[in-house]
Design a protein around this nucleic acid. Structure first.
Length: 722
RNA sequence: CCGCCUGUAGCUCAGCUGGAUAGAGCAACGGACUUCUAAUCCGUAGGUCAGAGGUUCGAGUCCUCUCAGGCGGGCCA
């Protein structure tokens, strides 16, 4: 915070001087951070371009301004350097003291931001590609909250799509030996296999993540189904049947009843009841959702509400959006041509789509069903508080509690089942509400969705604009990121571990990376990878601990390190670059990695432990500020202090650009500066009281800073020991 | 064909309102552990910032073109 303020004040003072001295107005004065400290702490290169206008040398302009500007009190001195840079040197001790005092609370804005992320199809286990979405989304949420914004986290559940239907097709129609193989058991009659599947659905709670959960069964069933479709026409026909049943709904049928019905149909050789199929699909979807929540809980990712597609369908969200679009003249019914009988939205008016061959987007098919984009428009309108009934009231969901959860620290795992926080889900009964909670109606909406969805996302945004809500369209932000792919080496590693072959061609294996695919079963499951990471971390801890000295809290430490490694891996790479996943790189704990950062924080804290034991001193306390000597901080200590002061600027910049590699770079800088100081500025053996006090103060500042950036912003736990 | 993204050290990547000497990590080589725990640090070596033009006092960063790779442009979701 201090640096932001000083920057703003200095810029304002400079602008005033420019006005007074040269009668010149500049409204966007930006002070940058020079490449090294000899060039000062802040710099303004603005005199250079003014040289031509004023017909004076840039140095002369800079000198005049340096002289005449009424600099804020934190500026110690000003120098002119190079061709005409204005370099500002801060009063180190003043800034240092301000930071040690602690910053004032950030202000709240009073308007709600919605972040939608995760959105995993509930038909298979989460893989590491999904983790990129969730981690980026979660960091965005954390950064927004850090700046004082109210944030609502939504995780959209597509419980009525073909993907869930495919798993149900597998359970009901996959040849028994294939289904049994997917379940990892001896082949049996279908009614017994159904029993087995239903037994694996698990209780109606969020379980602890493991690699034998229902999502892992789904992971096995799903590719077998999609592989059989092209080979077996009758089997392929089951997809439409099941999908139809799922869309019709189960009409409140009990799961036991549905299972009884399905098994009865097998024995009697009758066709399955549609309602029973729908009920099974619902159970499959929610069981997978609970598994996904458990996986994300390991990483400390939580949500506020789970909007369900089935509720969007049943509550007529699309019907309302359809009416609104028709009233606004945004869509039209085609009466001839290739889109005959479809309702389309014309994008021809929008410059972005003007060059397209066919600027019309179909929202309602000729058979009367709505496309995915149509549903998404309705959902987006609801998120923005723009979906209204004819009487002007908001068209809303019903809500009920899905689970409650607790988290013991900002970067600790989320624990479901009991706790203060409510995770809500939507329901189709609009009368149902949760006391004290409202959802949707956000001012700004971030949709964290991979870059391949850019086109439909633009269409959704354009629909909002065409409906006359230009500013809401501008505040509908697609947070796009590139996919996570696998290196050929990673593919071979998975094949080795799992003992199966994905049958990829030499051509595919020769590429730099291979795309993950749930349909083909190619991917690294998130839970599986977290397990591997934890095991590797445990090995590293044990190895470093020396002879048989295994700590009691080994699992806890290993978990912290694995989460740190993974979250940092996701945060440090810029979002519009494919993340080619490589086991060796992901399992590295040295260098520019999460554990390196964690280690620096742990190391700082250990100094205070040692100080306490040997000298009765610990962390620097605020009451000691007055005891700090008046001597200036040396350059290397100051570099660390200045980096600490930059946090607010960095977080704001990261949010503005949706680029968390900036935050990663900041925290890596901090850790690196600290590690260098660690060797040159010992505290415990230092006999000079003043020197020791100053170092304690700097390292305390650093430790606190790391705690905030790692835990609060990046969700990376700082363990007690490593 | 049109649109978006990417191309920076051997490898993986930072470099984000155009600024001063292009930075990390890994790999390589040479050093520092009876120490505030070496998951660390210090040093050496490694670059026509894909290529060519342009704008600018100044370009890895902005514009144009070319080349290479990726992804979109479904009455799939």
């Amino acid at each position: 915070m201090p640096l932001t303020t000083i920057r703003e004040r200095s810029a304002a003072a400079l602008a005033a001087a420019l006005q007074a001295e040269f009668d010149h107005t500049v409204d966007d004065i930006f002070l940058e951070i020079p490449p090294n400290r000899e060039m000062g702490d802040l710099a303004w290169p603005g005199a250079l371009p003014l040289a031509r206008i004023f017909k004076k040398s840039p140095r002369a302009i800079a000198e005049a301004l340096a002289e005449k500007t009424d600099w804020p009190e934190e500026i110690d001195r000003v120098e002119i350097a190079g061709p005409g840079f204005l370099n500002l040197f801060l009063k180190r001790s003043a800034i240092f003291r301000q930071l040690l005092e602690g910053s004032e609370k950030e202000y709240a804005t009073g308007s709600k931001t919605i972040v939608e992320h995760t959105n995993i199809n509930p038909n298979k286990a989460a893989h590491i590609g999904h983790l990129r979405n969730s981690v980026l989304g979660d960091i965005l949420v954390r950064c927004q909250r850090h700046l004082g914004h109210e944030v609502e986290v939504q995780n959209y559940i597509d419980d009525t799509g073909v993907q869930v239907a495919d798993v149900v097709v597998g359970i009901l129609y996959l040849p028994e030996p294939d289904l049994a193989a997917a379940l990892g058991i001896e082949t049996a009659r279908r009614d017994d296999l159904i029993d087995h599947v239903v037994g694996a659905l698990g209780p109606d709670q969020v379980p602890h993540a493991s690699t034998t959960d229902f999502d892992d069964l789904s992971w096995e069933i799903y590719p077998r189904v999609t592989n059989l479709y092209p080979e077996d026409e009758v089997f392929a026909g089951r997809r439409a049947e099941v999908l139809h049943a799922v869309e019709a709904g189960c009409d409140g049928m009990d799961l036991d009843e549905a299972v009884f019905s399905l098994k009865g149909s097998v024995i009697a050789g009758e066709i399955f009841s549609e309602r029973a199929i729908a009920r099974l699909a619902g159970a499959v979807a929610s069981s997978n959702v609970r598994c996904h929540l458990a996986t994300m809980a390991r990483l400390g990712v939580s949500y506020d509400v789970l909007p369900h597609e089935s509720d969007i369908l049943h509550l007529g969200f699309w019907a309302r959006a359809f009416e609104m679009l028709k009233e606004a003249g945004a869509i039209r019914l085609e009466s001839d041509g290739k889109n005959n009988g479809c309702w389309v939205m014309s994008l021809a008016e929008s410059p972005e789509f003007a060059d397209m061959e066919d600027p019309d987007k179909i929202l309602v098919r000729s058979n009367g069903t709505v496309t995915y984009t149509g549903k998404d428009i309705a959902y987006q309108l609801w998120k923005l508080g723009l979906l209204t009934d004819p009487d002007g009231a908001l068209h809303d969901f019903g809500y009920q509690s899905f689970a409650t959860w607790e988290q013991s620290g900002p970067a600790q795992p989320v624990r479901y089942i009991e706790g203060r926080h409510t995770l809500a889900r939507t329901t189709s009964n609009r009368v149902q509400t949760i006391a004290g909670h409202t959802f949707g109606n956000g001012r700004t909406v971030y949709n964290v969705i991979d870059v391949r969805q850019s086109y439909p996302q633009k269409v959704v945004k354009e629909a909002v604009r065409i409906l006359g809500h230009a500013s809401e369209a501008d505040r509908s932000i697609h947070f796009a990121y590139e996919m996570v792919a696998l290196t050929p080496a990673a593919i071979r590693e998975i094949e080795k571990r799992s003992g199966k072959s994905f049958g990829l061609s030499d051509e595919q294996m020769a590429k730099a990376f291979v795309e993950m695919s749930g349909r083909k079963g190619i991917g690294v499951k998130a839970d599986e990878f977290l397990d591997i990471l934890e095991a590797a971390a445990a090995d590293a801890i044990t190895e470093r601990a020396g002879d048989g000295d295994i700590p009691d809290d080994l699992p806890r430490r290993a978990r912290s390190i694995s989460v740190g490694a993974l979250r940092y891996l996701m945060a440090k790479q810029s979002r519009n670059r494919v993340l080619a996943f490589d086991f060796d790189e992901a399992l590295a704990f040295e260098g520019d990695t999460g554990p390196y950062l964690q280690y620096s924080a742990v190391r700082a804290n250990k100094i205070f432990d040692k100080l306490r034991a040997r000298r009765g001193e610990g962390r620097f306390e605020r009451t000691e500020i007055s005891s700090l000597a008046d001597t200036e901080l040396p350059d290397d200590l100051w570099a660390l202090v200045l980096e600490c002061a930059r946090r607010h600027d960095v977080v704001r910049q990261a949010i503005d650009n949706l680029e968390f590699s900036l935050l990663a770079g900041h925290v890596h800088n901090l850790a690196q500066l600290f590690h260098k100081l660690y060797h040159g500025h010992p505290i415990v053996p230092e006999e000079d009281e003043n020197l020791r006090l100053m170092r304690r103060a700097v390292f305390t500042l650093f430790a606190d800073e790391m705690k905030i950036v790692l835990e609060e912003l990046l969700g990376i736990p700082v363990p007690e020991e490593m």
